[in-house]
């Protein structure tokens, strides 16, 4: 087996182990949340019997460890459990509202898909943009262009996201009605329409993530410009752009990829503010809502998905960094 595939398998194994440990942490942390779903749903006047009945129905009366393994067993076969909020316990409080409760997976799937779509659109804009800006900033380092780019990206990353969002709404939706300010996307929307409605939140997020990627690209390239092989490329009479793109960039990829992966992970896990501003039906809002009402299975599932996204993206970044190193791709 080649050394590259061995390293990749190793990383994959480590990723799975990390995910397992994270699942324990999530489970303990979520169950340490103060407050109790049954208490919350029944209100202050609840009788202890009714609370106890709901707890028993949801399995909350069992110990932490059996509940963990029950949950883990479900996760391993793809069953994330049933959401408390929609569970059929209505009979206990005298109504008969819920008939068929959707599973956690059913609740999460459309939201997660929407989040991935937003992250995808953002990445499609932000990654090429920051790479290009980074390369140009390295090429024209210390010029006006370099400084303007730096100031602009730094101010955009330093501003709160909701502020950026409202500025964009002001300019692109209110003053010049080019894009809709509400991103109410749903199934069955044609792709073009869906894209248009996603564009404003995507642009807001682009402003938020570009700075780091662009600055890392610039720094990683400039860091290499003193290397003897860059001097050699210059002494071969190559154009400055070619020196940077074909000689510096391929050797600067590893740190750039790592920063891109971190920012993509952020796009999946950390965009709740932007979702709220644009009423975008992503997973962030669902997560916050489920924490509010102590809907434990939903919170756990969201956490697990976030953790998996982080681990997977970092794993991909690791593998790509390894592949960008010719010493590992082509051993002696």
């Amino acid at each position: 087996m080649s050394s590259v595939s061995r390293i990749i398998l190793q990383r994959l194994g480590l990723g799975i182990l990390t995910l397992f440990i994270v699942s324990i942490v999530i489970f303990i942390a979520v169950n340490l949340l103060p407050g109790d779903f049954a208490q919350l749903v029944l209100g202050q006047g609840a009788t202890p019997e009714a609370v106890e009945a709901i707890r028993k129905d949801l399995g909350l009366d069992q110990g932490l460890i059996p509940r963990y393994f029950q949950w883990l067993g479900g996760v391993l076969v793809g069953d994330l459990g049933n959401s408390f909020a929609n569970a059929n316990f209505a009979s206990f409080v005298g109504t008969n509202a819920n008939v068929t409760a959707p599973t956690v997976a059913e609740q999460i799937a459309p939201r997660f898909e929407a989040t991935l779509f937003l992250a995808g659109v953002t990445a499609a804009i932000a990654v090429p943009l920051s790479l290009t800006l980074g390369i140009l900033a390295a090429l024209y380092r210390n010029s006006i262009f370099d400084r303007v780019t730096n100031v602009f990206t730094l101010s955009s990353i330093s501003s709160p996201e909701f502020f950026l969002a409202y500025i964009l709404i002001l300019f692109l939706a209110v003053m010049n009605p080019l894009l809709p300010s509400l991103s109410n996307i749903h199934d069955g929307l044609p792709f073009g329409e869906r894209l248009t409605r996603t564009l404003l939140p995507a642009l807001t997020l682009t402003l938020a993530v570009t700075a780091q990627m662009m600055r890392m690209t610039r720094a990683a390239i400039i860091n290499l410009l003193a290397s003897p092989y860059i001097e050699m490329a210059r002494l071969k009479g190559l154009s400055p752009l070619r020196v940077i793109v074909t000689h510096a960039l391929p050797n600067a990829l590893a740190p750039i990829i790592t920063v891109i992966a971190l920012n993509l992970a952020y796009l999946i896990t950390g965009v709740v503010v932007v979702e709220v501003v644009f009423v975008y039906p992503g997973i962030g809002q669902l997560f916050v809502d489920s924490v509010k009402i102590r809907d434990i299975p939903l919170v756990q599932a969201c956490c697990l998905i976030f953790a998996a996204a982080y681990i997977l993206l970092n794993l991909t970044a690791d593998v790509l960094s390894i592949l960008s190193n010719p010493r590992l791709r082509h051993p002696k």
Binding site: S227, P228, Y229, E231, M232, A233, T246, H247, P250, P326
Partner: peptide
């Protein structure tokens, strides 16, 4: 060794 680009 240092003046050849390791990537090509």
């Amino acid at each position: 060794a240092a003046s050849f680009n390791p990537a090509h």
